[in-house]
Nucleic acid binder design. Sequence first.
DNA 1: AGCGGAGTAGACAACGTTTACTGTCACAGC
DNA 2: GCTGTGACAGTAAACGTTGTCTACTCCGCT
Lengths: 348, 348
Amino acid sequence: MASITEVAKLAGVSIATASRVMSASDYPVSVPTRARVLEAAQSLDYVPNALARGLHTQQVPVVGVIVHDITDPYFAEVVRGVEDAAATSGFLVITCSSERDPDREREYVRLLRSMRVAAVIFAGSGLDDPALTDELARHIEGMRAFGAAVVHLSPHALGEPEVSVDNAGGIAAMVGALASLGHRRIAFLAGPISLYVARQRLEGFRRGLADAGLDTDERLIAHTPFNRDGGAAGVDALRATGVPFTAIACANDLLALGALARLAALGVSVPGDVSVAGFDDIAVAADTSPGLSTVRVPLRELGRRGFAQAERLLAGAPLPTEILPAEVVLRASTGAPSRAIASTGVRP
Amino acid sequence: MASITEVAKLAGVSIATASRVMSASDYPVSVPTRARVLEAAQSLDYVPNALARGLHTQQVPVVGVIVHDITDPYFAEVVRGVEDAAATSGFLVITCSSERDPDREREYVRLLRSMRVAAVIFAGSGLDDPALTDELARHIEGMRAFGAAVVHLSPHALGEPEVSVDNAGGIAAMVGALASLGHRRIAFLAGPISLYVARQRLEGFRRGLADAGLDTDERLIAHTPFNRDGGAAGVDALRATGVPFTAIACANDLLALGALARLAALGVSVPGDVSVAGFDDIAVAADTSPGLSTVRVPLRELGRRGFAQAERLLAGAPLPTEILPAEVVLRASTGAPSRAIASTGVRP
DNA sequence: AGCGGAGTAGACAACGTTTACTGTCACAGC
DNA sequence: GCTGTGACAGTAAACGTTGTCTACTCCGCT
């Protein structure tokens, strides 16, 4: 593997001159000299050593993205957005699936720090856990200590996210849409209360209800894990209350997918008996049956903007926090209500 | 950001001694000295500089994974497998979505080389393109030139993949399952002929047919892009031939998803009129309606083994190529045939 | 008493860059 | 003819590690 020393030797110039050509520095190098260096580099298949460069500049053109799970379509889409933006700036992207496990997250942050990555983007939501928040704050401080940019794409304990999505507004709009269809008793699969996004979405749910002139029935709010199984469990929890409802709004699409599957297994027709709505509009949402009504969030754009903010932060430019719009998408899983189903009133 | 120099100073030892403690070298350091160094490191929040370390060792504990698109559930799952295995060895994972674009791939390989990553895992299949193959060969040689491990998880032009999946066997088994259900005229959405995996799967299709004592009707093989739209296009192409068929096997799940959607739009019932089968068993397959019969491939395991092979390669250990089994999973999209549908015979 | 060898610690030279800092040269201005 | 200046090129010192080599202290053995 050729180093710049060999390039310089072959070109018959000093290392400094070769470096100035290869690193596109603005230091003047005469045209013929530059050409000779370039030719030497080419013929040696020279690739600059980013480690040596990074050792000197204290920074390497790499950005770390901390997600819950890259297998979750939500995060895959966000990471792709980061990657696309990063690629145009010559940055590489390190993906870290933390599984929301504090130990894994800590370890990833440590590794990212050891690599002196230029930026770390936290794509997943923060957890409300004082101990963890303290620790995270130390980590973030540690990262910033060597000039790394830190960007959040979701609400968290330590201030506003640099870029985010109108979570509350999106859910409120969906509740409004359900109300317009005639629904009066709307249930909510809220996800885990400890997650800040889930809280924002719950707040949006309440707001939507209020906007539509409906009361919130706390018994129709179920807190279950943010995944497919959580959706099924949520349906069961809702039915167990015995309280009637005609629609289920969900805090994300995975919950809605689980709910759909569980309802189908129970023989409850969607949207005949109950309407179901999700949030995020992950790609699968169009392939479920019935097609899932949901709230579309520009996930890839979220990732792109996240990287852009990181770059701006690195450049020391001021940083207005951005909130991306969320848009209701009505497909086949929602319709006008027929009759309220309760735990005992499910059609066989 | 504290360096080892400061740690050494605070502990009152030489840099060398501090290094020996921090890098868990097997060089003897007395217990009290070690304790002092550790304490100093702790109090300074010292995190070793992986760049400096990598500059010296010519290698950084990072592995690059080149995929088609991280947003494709197939690749997300594989990357997750790599990530899980990598995490237990303290390695970070760089994700590169090349979109099968030679320019993007070249650029990613260049960046990965500049980072001196320890390994590069090619998760996606190779393309049959002599120019590209040449270039790729040069890249791979370049990577190996500095001691990087290169691992392929799919068939490609330059030899056997280090780990892969029984593509042909899986499809053949699915064709066998369809034949057992009574299907005699089975169509195949083969994906792009230029992709090596697609070829293997096509070969498996032919073999499955032959094993079942059926003739291959070349008109029932459609080559379309490896995605959802390709599935829809494939259905249209098949119908346009006017040749009757009772089942469609697909070279991957995305094609099957597209086919399912297109058939639903045409009012063709699945599996009433046509059976549909996919390949890969991505997570979505369980959420389609009807649930997609497919061939399950241990994708996460594929990623894990890929990393394990890279590690073995790095250690210089011999390397038996592995082929992971594929298993038929029958869900609701397949059933006994009723009558063959042709381009003109579709029920309204 | 002298010597060899553990056991431990420190000095120092890499690794491949970048970037002050120093030159050198030619040329313009006086 | 001298000096100042601008355009280049080279020297050398970092950046933070690791590993080799040398050095010092005890110890036990002859």
